[in-house]
Write a protein that binds this DNA or RNA. Structure first.
Lengths: 223, 223
DNA sequence: GTATCACAATCTGTATACAGCTCTTAATGC
DNA sequence: GCATTAAGAGCTGTATACAGATTGTGATAC
């Protein structure tokens, strides 16, 4: 069953590790240690690392090797703005989709709403949250846009998990945000849909911004 | 003076080649030939190729190697939509910038308008066009957004050159589009600025779409 | 003339080897 | 005790070697 190449397999593994900050922010990545951990030679390992650099998960300092990306408020804020840009434009485009696609989105929400409210696993929660937003953005039928949005999502997934954990433990989560967006979409009300979506993302961005600023010390929880 | 690593140097060279479609769309890339042409071994070459895959310039078919990206109307349309998404949101954010930054954009336009109208070199024309849009997007102060926009620009630069060449030889170029956008920005008129920018990009996208569809056969001009 | 199959050449993907640089550490001088 | 420095280990970046797969070619059968 090990059909795929070592490089792509290692690339997927390393991306998962980078998403969950298995490498600490700013940390240097030891290639020799990784070859032992992942049981590959340095050639495919470095090919995967180079791809992760291009994807924004790592940086490469010449002569010093690969480092994990930083995790500062500025970077997170920028990525949330990027997410807004992509999702809002995708929404505009998606409103041109045919009725069947829109009602499918509504059905998706109806089906997942209950399990979303009942879910206690934060990772699963984020997965469902991302799934809704990706389904919404998918209405645009733009593969490149979806690819970039997926990349942005992966790069902020960690702080998004912390954000949702906080919301669940605290008081403030607004479970009807997705519903309001979806209803505006079903009405093909572009103004209301865009306002709801933009407000939803920016609210989460603001929460996360405060989180990253104030709680940086406990933001990284080692295994 | 050869300070930088082979891999990054080769990466820059290959990106330039990919931008100008020195590799034909869909063409398979012969690594051995490239090692001779660029005078490096396959290891840094393949590291650079892997980064270009992540950047969207190439694709990698398992067991068959690297291929140049396609050049089909759908792909181009998607990238133009992506450009709209990024630039429009950057404009929204940029309107919050301080006066000095806005007037600097106006000065940039004043300074370049004459040479833009007089310029006959299409490559230089595209460079100036991109420079204006990047300066506009730069007002947002979002490095990640600018990075993605730069990548999108590089991937559509070839068709943009063809588009501008056609506009210059024909009748239709609207040289005042940038001016109208800038004036709305200086007035901090968000609605007018967004409408002008969106209309400008979508007009060019539509021209390019027709171009790619109808003139695909002469779109690729080998050296 | 067309399809099938075998063989050879070529290419991809990976492992390994090695040169040069970087960082650490220990020793020395003050 | 502290800064400086020199030696050593470890690491990065690149070249090369090799196994397996793929593609192209030519022969053969029909």
């Amino acid at each position: 069953m090990t059909e795929k190449s070592s490089a792509s397999r290692v690339h997927a593994q390393l991306r998962d590790m980078a998403i969950r900050f298995a490498f600490k922010p700013g940390e240097r990545i030891n290639e020799s240690a990784l070859t032992r951990a992942l049981d590959v030679s340095r050639t495919p390992l470095r090919e995967a690392l180079n791809r992760l650099v291009a994807e924004g998960f790592l940086t490469l300092r010449p002569g010093q090797g690969f480092f994990c990306r930083a995790l500062d408020p500025q970077q997170v804020a920028e990525l949330y703005q990027l997410r807004t840009a992509l999702e809002v434009e995708a929404l505009r485009l998606g409103l041109q989709a045919e009725d069947a696609a829109l009602t499918a989105l509504g059905a998706h929400l109806d089906a997942s709403e209950a399990s979303y409210a009942a879910c206690t696993d934060v990772a699963e929660l984020v997965r469902m949250d991302e799934a809704f937003h990706l389904a919404l953005a998918g209405l645009a039928g733009n593969g490149e846009l979806l690819r970039m949005l997926t990349n942005v999502n992966e790069r902020i997934r960690y702080v998004r998990m912390v954000n949702l954990r906080q919301l669940r433990s605290g008081a403030g989560e607004d479970l009807s945000a997705h519903r309001r967006i979806t209803e505006a979409v079903l009405r093909r009300d572009a103004g209301a849909a865009e306002a709801a979506l933009r407000g939803h993302i920016e609210r989460r961005a603001e929460e996360t911004r405060a989180l990253v600023r104030l709680a940086y010390s406990q933001l990284y929880v080692p295994d």
